[in-house]
Write a protein that binds this DNA or RNA. Structure first.
Lengths: 199, 199
DNA sequence: GTCTATAAGACGATAGAC
DNA sequence: GTCTATCGTCTTATAGAC
């Protein structure tokens, strides 16, 4: 599957990332990884201690990538609403689900402190990042101060994660979009009463 | 594990339900089911055609149960907001996740039209049920008619499903509660401007 | 670094005795 | 209806040659 110029460890990590995304940890075997990476067994066990070790490298990279992608949308210069909107409406491979969030449904990942850590850190970071932005929005009078930024941030992250569930259940990205539109409508209605800010 | 008065098929189905909830379809083996049910292999294959057949029976029952539980909260007699609130705040085994929603992350379930059908039907039913309630709320002036009931309903279901993800990621139910409180705050702020309805 | 060989056990199912 | 035996394959490695 990978025949390019990547090194063997690199191909193994990238293959693991894809298989973890598609089939989860329990559903991904070392053999499948090796075949996807075009590497032999000896090769894999030379570079990595085993399945958990390789998975950890893959999960860490996926988590890092997700933070970077989110930051690209959240770090803009518009209003708080605009930045949250940019995050919610950014392009997504909706039917594949969230490569980080889906790991929370993997019993072996949740059971391992090491494997779970990157997942926890990433979702915590995302919620905190959103909370900070929403707090700015409240401070600048963009939203009513009846809003608790940290709670709304949790709602935003949850809606995205749950949107993936709805999309995969129905087999169509539209279900994700509907949930996001609903959330944006609710957020829009929370503009401070005296708000002069235009979304 | 089950030594009570249940029949063998019954014990097999209940065991499958629990294991499916905990480990998903891919992570649940016939052997594990048999041991949990206290039944031999021959016994299992006598009553069910195989793993998919048994899983289908288990998933159907779980889906049915989830609809009944949701209806118990949604079918109340209060305002639309109160009924949605009752649904959101109902007791949940948060850290175990949603026994129906989690199946959407199972590649083998999604790949099978038969196994996926109960999942799709249940989440669709839930969204439609919520949409109907929200529509009543809008019609009675409880919510501003800027709300699109079907979209808000999607947001509600997504927040719950995503709330499970956040809770399992952090290892604590509090993350679920935060997302729900955020959503209720947003919904509360959407009371129609002329609204006399008290939540 | 990569390969093949080997291993002990799990997986999903079938066969046939009781 | 339930049991044990067996099957071919996959899983997650380890060993050792090249």
């Amino acid at each position: 599957m990978y025949t390019g110029s990547m090194s063997t460890p690199e191909r193994l990590i990238e293959s693991t990332r894809e298989l973890l995304w598609e089939r989860g940890y329990v559903g991904t075997s070392p053999k499948a990884i090796q075949q996807h990476a075009g590497a032999g067994q000896g090769s894999m066990y030379h570079h990595f201690a085993g399945k958990p070790d390789l998975a950890l490298a893959a999960i860490r990279r996926t988590a890092e990538e997700m933070r970077a992608t989110a930051e690209a949308a959240l770090g803009g210069s518009g209003s708080a609403y605009a930045r949250v909107e940019a995050y919610l409406l950014r392009e997504r491979d909706v039917l594949r689900g969230c490569p980080v969030g889906r790991l929370t449904m993997d019993p072996d990942v949740i059971a391992s402190d090491e494997l779970r850590a990157p997942v926890t850190e990433t979702l915590d970071w995302l919620r905190d990042r959103l909370a900070g932005i929403l707090e700015e929005g409240v401070a600048q009078g963009e939203f009513t101060d009846a809003l608790v930024p940290r709670e709304i941030a949790s709602t935003v992250v949850a809606t995205v994660q749950g949107g993936y569930v709805l999309a995969r259940s129905s087999g169509a990205p539209a279900a994700f979009d509907a949930a996001v539109r609903g959330l944006l409508a609710l957020l829009g209605a929370c503009a401070a009463p005296s708000g002069t800010t235009r979304h």
